Amino acid sequence: MANYKNLIKTAASYGLIVAAGLGAGYAVNVVPAMLKPAYVEGDYSAYFPNAQTKVVLYGTSWCQYCAKARDYLKTNNIPYVDLDIEQSEQARRQHAALGGGGVPVLLVGDRKMTGFNPSALQSAIKELGG
């Protein structure tokens, strides 16, 4: 009976160690993204094809977050320029010059956003007066 209790305690201890390790591994991936600002401000005017363009999306055809960003922009009737970094060498160079780091990269006025963040995108559009 005592041996059975020790076995249960040992198994529970190992279970807690594994759970703590999984939790720490998850936190290592998630926490930095939570601490990262939603956007970076700067002068991105060189990346807009003309003075009327206020939103540019750098993405790919297969990226689900690019698709969500496109859908958001279309649903909200926001005009934008869609640049596929796999189909256009110029778009690939511009994306790299902006720091790359994944897709989508959205330029909205003086804000650069990496990834799709609906609230940050909405705030940036509102800042443009749109």
Rank of each mutant, 00 (worst) to 15 (best):
M1V: 11
A2W: 10
A2C: 12
Y4E: 14
K5T: 03
N6V: 10
N6C: 10
L7C: 14
I8E: 10
I8P: 02
I8V: 06
K9R: 15
K9Y: 05
T10F: 11
T10V: 15
T10R: 14
A11F: 01
A11M: 07
A12F: 08
Y14G: 15
G15V: 06
G15F: 02
G15W: 00
L16D: 14
I17H: 06
I17K: 11
I17Q: 05
V18N: 08
V18W: 04
A19P: 02
L22A: 06
L22I: 05
A24V: 12
A24Q: 06
G25V: 02
Y26E: 12
A27N: 03
A27F: 00
N29A: 14
V30Y: 15
V31N: 03
P32W: 01
A33W: 13
A33F: 13
M34W: 10
M34K: 07
L35T: 08
L35R: 12
L35Q: 15
K36T: 09
K36D: 00
A38M: 10
A38F: 11
A38Y: 07
Y39A: 15
D43W: 06
D43N: 04
Y44I: 01
S45Y: 01
S45F: 01
S45M: 09
Y47L: 12
Y47I: 05
Y47E: 01
P49Y: 10
P49L: 02
P49W: 02
A51W: 05
A51L: 12
T53I: 09
K54M: 09
V55F: 01
L57Y: 11
L57T: 15
G59I: 08
T60C: 09
T60H: 08
S61C: 06
S61Q: 14
W62F: 09
C63T: 05
C63F: 09
Q64G: 15
Q64D: 13
Q64N: 14
C66T: 07
A67C: 13
A67I: 06
A67E: 09
K68W: 13
R70S: 04
D71Q: 15
L73G: 01
T75Q: 09
T75C: 13
N76D: 06
I78H: 02
I78Q: 03
D82M: 07
L83S: 00
L83Q: 00
D84T: 05
I85W: 00
E86W: 11
Q87P: 07
S88N: 13
S88W: 14
S88H: 12
Q90V: 07
Q90D: 03
R92N: 10
Q94N: 15
H95S: 07
A96S: 10
A96F: 08
A96L: 07
A97E: 04
L98N: 05
G99L: 08
G100H: 06
G100E: 07
G102I: 03
G102N: 05
P104Q: 05
V105P: 00
L107V: 04
G109Y: 09
D110W: 04
D110S: 15
D110N: 15
D110G: 00
R111Q: 11
R111V: 10
K112Q: 00
T114F: 09
T114K: 02
G115R: 05
L121I: 06
L121T: 10
L121K: 01
Q122K: 12
Q122H: 13
S123H: 03
S123R: 11
A124Y: 08
I125D: 07
I125H: 03
K126C: 12
K126I: 15
E127Y: 14
G129N: 05
G130P: 00
